[in-house]
């Protein structure tokens, strides 16, 4: 799956990096993802029964926190207008999946991230430097992503020696998430239209309630 993500990133990278505004938007999205990851790892550290694994999750969370800050700063440097708050949310992945599946999910996410960052670096190589030195930032983050993929892989082997099935399940889950996201986008559009129509139909009745004077 990471190969697909890498290929897609290579395809879109020239388009994204050709505009500082688009690049800033994408990098701001990275900051958002890293902040969400801090929360996931922090929740995992709280819930795992193993203090040793809790320590590893906390180290991971500290890295992600640093990445989020680096990306937020980079987004601002690429486009000063891109300085909105980095909103975070959580899917409570550890609670929902359990530790082994959570690790498989994180492991795959790190591999996917690595493939995407590799593709961005390949695109940026040899091009004119951009504000905020995105290559240096991405290269620094990439080093950590390698380490994260390695330790989550090792922990996964420890918790689930036959991890093939688990990884396949998580890959399916990831595809299902993408499908749901697309469904949500479509239903949001439909809702906007029907909500607007409903408003136009109902409003004349309610204007009678409008206070006079």
């Amino acid at each position: 799956m990471s190969l697909i993500f890498g290929a897609l990133t290579r395809l879109f990278a020239p388009f994204v990096w050709s505009s500082p505004r688009r690049a800033a938007r994408m990098v701001h999205g990275f900051a958002h993802a890293e902040r969400a990851s801090v929360i996931d790892m922090q929740q995992a550290a709280r819930h795992t029964p193993s203090p040793a694994r809790a320590a590893q999750y906390l180290r991971h969370a500290a890295d992600e926190w640093r990445h989020a800050q680096l990306f937020a700063r980079l987004a601002h440097k690429l486009d000063a207008a891109r300085s909105g708050p980095v909103h975070v949310d959580t899917e409570h992945l550890y609670d929902t999946l359990g530790e082994a599946s959570f690790l498989a999910f994180v492991h795959m996410g790190e591999q996917r991230g690595r493939a995407q960052f590799d593709a961005h670096l390949a695109h940026l190589a040899g091009r004119a430097p951009l504000p905020g030195r995105p290559r240096a930032v991405i290269r620094g983050v990439l080093r950590d992503e390698h380490q994260h993929a390695a330790y989550t892989g090792a922990l996964l082997d420890e918790l689930e020696p036959r991890r093939g099935g688990l990884v396949a399940r998580m890959a399916r889950r990831q595809l299902w998430r993408q499908w749901l996201r697309a469904g949500r986008a479509l239903s949001s559009g439909l809702y906007l239209v029907t909500g607007g129509l409903l408003y136009v139909l109902c409003a004349p009745l309610f204007t009678l309630l409008r206070p006079r004077g």
Binding site: Y191, L192, G195, G196, L198, Y199, V200, C202, A203, P204, L205, F206, T207, L209, R210, P211
Partner: peptide, 21 residues
Amino acid sequence: VMRSTLTTFPHGLSGFVAGMA
């Protein structure tokens, strides 16, 4: 939410859609 957005027709359109969601 319904009353405040519907009685401010047409300005309340986006508020109605977002608020009802």
